[in-house]
């Protein structure tokens, strides 16, 4: 794991005090947490210590890396400096460093966060714990296998507009605006990570879409041209009823999408309309209202 250690450097520079062989020996002996510390310095410099989870599917441990702190750094910057100096084999996923790609999701001091948007000076004093997202299988170090989300994404019934010639579709601005909030999603999957329905009860993954996909369902259900009815699907197969609206998804969303208030609860209310509300059911029967097929919608546009 730490075969490529940095060369010894002059006093005052920063380096690892434990060699790769020593680390392996410590591991074999089951000794305490491994630590990389600064070399002898001429004067005291402010430091930052990252306690990073290192490991793979066979197991792992927290490893301390101490580096000189730099003003205005985010956690991802420190991880990159660790890769550049102390642990070149440290695996982490990142891309934009601007909070827009959703790649560097991890758990910082136990809370799902984007490493590139978490400033070191805003965290409490002491070592900063950086661990991979807990809900997904580990690949290596801070990198997890998020393919569960892509499987769920494949199962979202696609947008189904009524048949019309290209260019003939018309939508009003007020209807288009409604779903724009949901399109801000950067697919960091931190809402999926923090959701206790699958975080603490993994067996629910087979029957639960999760907050990220509930906003996708909400966007489609509120689309002015869509003709699909996904309410029974949400109730029976996508586990909308499993959500107990504890709002953690909203709390961790880096795009500040009001996932619970604007997507999950409106979907729950629509499911109530379709399945649990006897007055709504009676109203539909008496007024002969039902979801229109694409053909009906095309024949009688509203």
């Amino acid at each position: 794991m730490t075969d490529a250690m940095p060369e010894p450097t002059p006093a005052g520079a920063w380096t690892a005090t434990t060699t790769g062989a020593e680390v392996a020996a410590l591991d074999d002996a089951g000794a305490g947490p491994r630590t990389f510390e600064p070399g002898p310095a001429e004067e005291e410099e402010p430091t930052v210590t990252l306690r990073v989870w290192r490991g793979d599917p066979s197991g792992g441990d927290l490893v301390d890396y101490t580096l000189p702190s730099e003003e205005g750094e985010v956690v991802l910057d420190v991880v990159h400096r660790i890769q550049a100096t102390l642990a070149p084999d440290l695996a982490c996923r990142w891309n934009c460093k601007a909070g827009k790609c959703g790649s560097c999701s991890s758990e910082i001091n136990g809370k799902p966060s984007l490493m590139c948007m978490t400033r070191v000076d805003e965290l409490p004093e002491g070592p900063i714990t950086v661990t991979p997202m807990r809900t997904f299988p580990i690949l290596r170090d801070l990198v997890t296998d998020v393919s569960f989300n892509y499987e769920v994404a494949r199962r979202v019934p696609a947008f189904a507009p009524p048949p019309a010639a290209p260019g003939d579709y018309r939508m009003q601005q007020v209807d288009v605006e409604r779903g724009q909030e949901f399109r801000k999603c950067i697919e960091c999957f931190m809402c999926q990570d923090v959701c206790h329905v699958i975080r603490d009860h993994e067996d629910n993954k087979r029957q639960y879409a999760g907050p990220r996909f509930f906003i996708r369902y909400a966007e489609l259900e509120m689309h002015p041209l869509d003709t699909n009815d996904r309410r029974e699907l949400l109730r029976q197969r996508m586990g909308l009823g499993l959500c107990n609206i504890t709002k953690c998804c909203t709390e961790v969303c880096p795009e500040h999408i009001k996932i619970t208030d604007n997507a999950i609860i409106p979907l729950k209310e629509r499911v109530v309309d379709a399945s649990y509300d006897p007055v709504a059911w009676l109203g539909r029967k008496i007024l002969r209202r039902h979801k229109r097929s694409p053909e009906e919608a095309a024949a009688h546009p509203r």
Binding site: W53, G60, T131, R134, L142, F148, E151, Q207
Partner: peptide, 13 residues
Amino acid sequence: VTPVVIGAPRGGP
């Protein structure tokens, strides 16, 4: 039904 592997090793303490 979503095909997922249940019980795969997770990272973190």
